[in-house]
Design a protein around this nucleic acid. Sequence first.
DNA 1: AATCCCAGCAACCGCACTTCC
DNA 2: TGGAAGTGCGGTTGCTGGGAT
Length: 430
Amino acid sequence: MASSSSHDTTPARSSSGAGEEGVALKKGPWTAAENAILFDYVSKHGEGNWNAVQRNSGLQRCGKSCRLRWANHLRPNLKKGAFTPEEERLILELHAKLGNKWARMAAQMPGRTDNEIKNYWNTRMKRHQRAGLAICPTHIHSGQHRQHRLQRHRKQHHALKSTSHTQMLDFQNQRAVSFNQTSQPQSYLFTAHQAPIPSQFNFFMEQSNSNSQSYHTSLSPAVASHSLLLNNNPPHLPPHQSNYHQDPPDSSADFGFVRLLSDHRSDGMLDDGFYAVEFGNENSNNQLFQPTFKNMKEDEGHQGAVTMKETTPENSSSGLTSIGVMVVEPEPEPEPEPEPVVDIINPLEDELTSLIDSFPAASPTPQWYRRGSTMAEINNSSGDANGEVVLDLCPTHQLIMPSLEAEATDQVLSLGGSTSMLWHELPSIY
DNA sequence: AATCCCAGCAACCGCACTTCC
DNA sequence: TGGAAGTGCGGTTGCTGGGAT
């Protein structure tokens, strides 16, 4: 990228100001000669008294400019080059602790300058705002905030244990998904008209052929940003043994499904383990296939999974589109003492809060989050609503994910024989 | 090959704080 | 004690080079 030397012969940003005795002060990129003069002067006289540099050295730069040049480029023991992963991690931690206190951050990173750290952070912010990604991973939150989150989580955990584990996210007042019957092979089209699907969700397509081989392929981010068109049997899919299908339920099954997965990027920008939506279908023979369950924030000791449910006409008359999340948690640790914390939110809400906290401020808050519904309330076909997850998609089909109280890998997801779907007007999940 | 776009970076600017007289 | 000078900090600007088209 641009370096100081690249500016050496470029006067583009230069302008003039008046120094002491009316001497025109230069602005803009520093030349090698100026660097040499400054370095020589500071080597002899030490740092400080920067305005004297111009007076005594003949350098036509103001004191502030000299100080900046020295601090950012000329002083000894400066580290040059890209930040190491360890330094990046440190920046995240320090920023969580200190905020935009670049100088204080630099003081704890030998060889790095505040300007460098600031530029790094700002470009990173821009990049992730563009991408709609969370800025700080959960594990970077400051100790106090982190502890508070854990407290709230434990508090909520107890509340859940006493009632139900089912938590619902409802996409209300949205147009329901419409399904169109088409001939085989099945194809799915997911379209989000209101906002791009956030890029923290990777789109994959997984398929299994008649030989129980699973295929897994990524989908174009450009396509995924607003819509997905999927065919469950494209011939061009690269053979890639899926990590997600543990036991294909039926070797003759031929199915595909789409995932929106949390993007675990190497830069650790996202809330680990926050998973959103899993779409599924099955083949025309109504073979069942296993949904895949993901850990949610294993460090806090619970698992979660999200899937969707097509609803029958009678139980989707409201046109409700909802996404449910089930949280499976281990037995609670004994609380050492009652906590004065009053605000109780569920773990999912907590995670969503952390995600939403970093959303662009201009994004409208969708009116889709509602707690309280259980699958039993929507569909009386199940006797045990605990942990069931529901996503109403259309008035004519139903996809049911049973409780996760049993071993997750044994869960079976059933789905009617839909062939294609349009998911219109998804609420935004920035 | 030419042009456009944009990420990365260096440097400037304004403000606040500290020090000195 | 108050004003001027010096210094530090954070925000912003604008240039450059590389990649995309």
